[in-house]
């Protein structure tokens, strides 16, 4: 315990200084209206619809101490009922199509869907594969897209800040 305390004191704050607030004009008006209703608090439920786990690693670091997405009011939660935003990664596989649809329906309004990564946006390298149903927008309406394979944590944090407005 003493060693841990010493480590905490020696390490201090590892969160990087907050970058400039991203331009919210990039959001389309309907999403911007939903984001205003959420007013600085966005609970995020992550759905892996068939991802290779590259995007999951980047989400983990976006919510880790260095990028600390929680300081902008975003928080990962355990249930879609608690969520305001669904963050979907990967191309939607046949087995996950119904699960994603039901998860979306379990989220109370106003709800936002974030397609995270190239696979979620347009199936990426998995386009045309036999187990792939389609992109996320083929199954549920998508409000925000984050490009990249995988997208860097900065991009994830910037997209979430667009929703929390902080």
């Amino acid at each position: 315990m003493r060693e841990l305390l010493r480590k905490i004191r020696a390490t201090g704050r590892v969160a990087e200084p907050a970058p400039e607030r991203p331009d919210t004009a990039a959001l389309d008006p309907a999403t911007a209206a939903k984001a205003r209703e959420l007013a600085g608090s966005v609970q995020v439920r992550h759905v892996d619809a068939g991802s290779c786990n590259g995007c999951e690693v980047e989400i983990a670091s976006a919510f880790g101490p260095v990028y600390d997405a929680e300081r902008y009011g975003a928080r990962l939660v355990a249930s879609p009922r608690h969520a305001d935003a669904l963050v979907v990664t990967g191309p939607v596989t046949r087995n996950m199509r119904m699960a994603l649809r039901r998860t979306y329906e379990a989220v109370p309004e106003p709800r936002v869907v974030v397609a995270l990564g190239d696979c979620a946006r347009n199936c990426g390298v998995f386009a045309g594969a036999y187990g792939v149903e389609g992109a996320v927008s083929d199954v549920v309406p998508v409000d925000v897209e984050i490009a990249g394979c995988p997208p860097p944590p900065e991009a994830i944090v910037a997209a979430l800040r667009g929703l929390t407005g902080r």
Binding site: V14, A15, S41
Partner: peptide
């Protein structure tokens, strides 16, 4: 080592939850 969401964050969460369906 994080920055933290601020002391008022639970109130922001509650305000938003009250507006939800």
């Amino acid at each position: 080592g994080r920055a933290g969401a601020g002391v008022a964050q639970p109130w922001r969460d509650l305000r938003k939850l009250l507006r939800k369906e």
